[in-house]
C-alpha cells in the first residue's frame, strides 16, 4: 500500500534520509522507530509530497501522493498535532477538512465523538488545547475521510496512559479491518505492543526491519544471567568449559546461551535459583543498532 524505494533527502552536505526502502502492507501496523532526528518525519513528509526527495520514490496505492485525486479520502495524515491555527476552534479545523474532502458535516461530530472531545471542548480555540487534546483532534482529522491508509507521526505524544491504550485499540481495530497503518515513534514500548512490522532507523539509514522475531535474530549478543546456591563452583565449571564468566550482583553474567548454563549446572549438580537470557529484548537491540546515532553516546 505504501512503497518507498531508495529514498534519499540531503540538505547541503547533511543527509537526513539515506537510501531508505520499505513497504507497508494492508491489515498491518508498521512501526517506524528511531531516535530524535533519525529521519522519520522527513521520510513521512516525502511520502505525502510535502518535501521533495533528492533521490528515490514513494508511492501510495501505486501512485505518487500528488496524483491521488482527493488524497484525504485515501490517506489519513497526522504529521504534527501542533500544526494548527491557534485562533481556530477544534470544530472549525475538522469542518474545513470535511469541506475540502466533500464530506457531510455530520462526519465532524462523529469524529469528535470518536476521539472523545466534548462539544464544549470542540468549541474552544486550539491555543487553549493541551498537547493531548491537539493529538486527539489530529487523529480525528486523519480519520475524517475514512481513509484506507493512515500515516501518523508520533501520535502517542502527549496522550495520557488511558489515551495511549485507547489509540492502540483504535489502530489495531483499524488494521484488522484491512487498513494500512504507518506510525512513527521514539517510544519503543508503545510500538512494540501494536506493530506487526517494525522499521528501525538511525541517522537516516534503516538499521533493521521485520517482525519481532526477525528483529531479535539481529541480536548477536549471547548472554545469560544466572544465580545458584554455589556460584563459585558454577563459575569454575563454566570456566573449565572455556566460557567466560563475570560476577554480576548476586549472580553471574555468562557469555553463553541459558541452555548451556543449565546443562553445566546439571552436570555438576548445582541448584539454580534464577536463570534467564541476558539479551534485553527489543530495547537493547534498538539501542545497540542505533548506538552510534544516539545523542547520549555509547549507551548499549
Amino acid at each position: 500500500m505504501i512503497k518507498v524505494e531508495g529514498l534519499t533527502r540531503t540538505y547541503g552536505s547533511y543527509t537526513a534520509v539515506d537510501d531508505v526502502s520499505f513497504e507497508c502492507q494492508p491489515g498491518r501496523v508498521t512501526g517506524f522507530l528511531g531516535p530524535n532526528g533519525a529521519g522519520k518525519s522527513t521520510t513521512m513528509r516525502i511520502i505525502v509530497g510535502l518535501t521533495p526527495p533528492t533521490k528515490g520514490t514513494a508511492t501510495v496505492k501505486g501512485v505518487h501522493y500528488h496524483d491521488l485525486p482527493n488524497p484525504g479520502r485515501t490517506v489519513g495524515v497526522l504529521l504534527d498535532a501542533s500544526a494548527q491555527h491557534d485562533g481556530r476552534t477544534g470544530r472549525e479545523v475538522l469542518a474545513l477538512g470535511a469541506m475540502t474532502m466533500g464530506l457531510p458535516m455530520s462526519r465532524v461530530d462523529e469524529m469528535l465523538h470518536l476521539v472523545s472531545l466534548s462539544p464544549s471542548e470542540a468549541k474552544r480555540r486550539i491555543r487553549n488545547y493541551s498537547l493531548g487534546m491537539r493529538q486527539r483532534l489530529g487523529i480525528a482529522h486523519a480519520l475524517l475521510g475514512d481513509p484506507e491508509i493512515l500515516i501518523l507521526d508520533e501520535p502517542a505524544n502527549g496522550l495520557d496512559p488511558a489515551g495511549i491504550r485507547w489509540m492502540r485499540g483504535l489502530l489495531k481495530q483499524y488494521a484488522d479491518r484491512g487498513g494500512t497503518v504507518l506510525l512513527s515513534s521514539h517510544l519503543l514500548h508503545e510500538v512494540e505492543l501494536i506493530a506487526d512490522e517494525m522499521i528501525l532507523i538511525g541517522k537516516g539509514k534503516i538499521v533493521a526491519q521485520g517482525d519481532r522475531k526477525a528483529l531479535m535474530a539481529h541480536n548477536t549478543k549471547v548472554e545469560a544471567l544466572v544465580t545458584s546456591l554455589d556460584n563459585a563452583a558454577l563459575a569454575d565449571a563454566l570456566t573449565a568449559k572455556g566460557i567466560s564468566v563475570a560476577a554480576a550482583g548476586e549472580g553471574l553474567r555468562v557469555a553463553a546461551e541459558p541452555v548451556e548454563v543449565g546443562r553445566t549446572a546439571v552436570e555438576h549438580h548445582i541448584v539454580l535459583t534464577d536463570l534467564r537470557s541476558g539479551e534485553g529484548g527489543l530495547e537493547d537491540l534498538f539501542l545497540q543498532l542505533t548506538a552510534d546515532t544516539q545523542r547520549e553516546g555509547a549507551v548499549a
Partner: peptide
C-alpha cells in the same frame, strides 16, 4: 501557523 502541512496534504496540487 504551519497549517500548510494540512492544507497541502489535503490538496497536493
Amino acid at each position: 501557523q504551519r497549517t500548510a502541512m494540512v492544507t497541502f496534504a489535503l490538496e497536493p496540487r
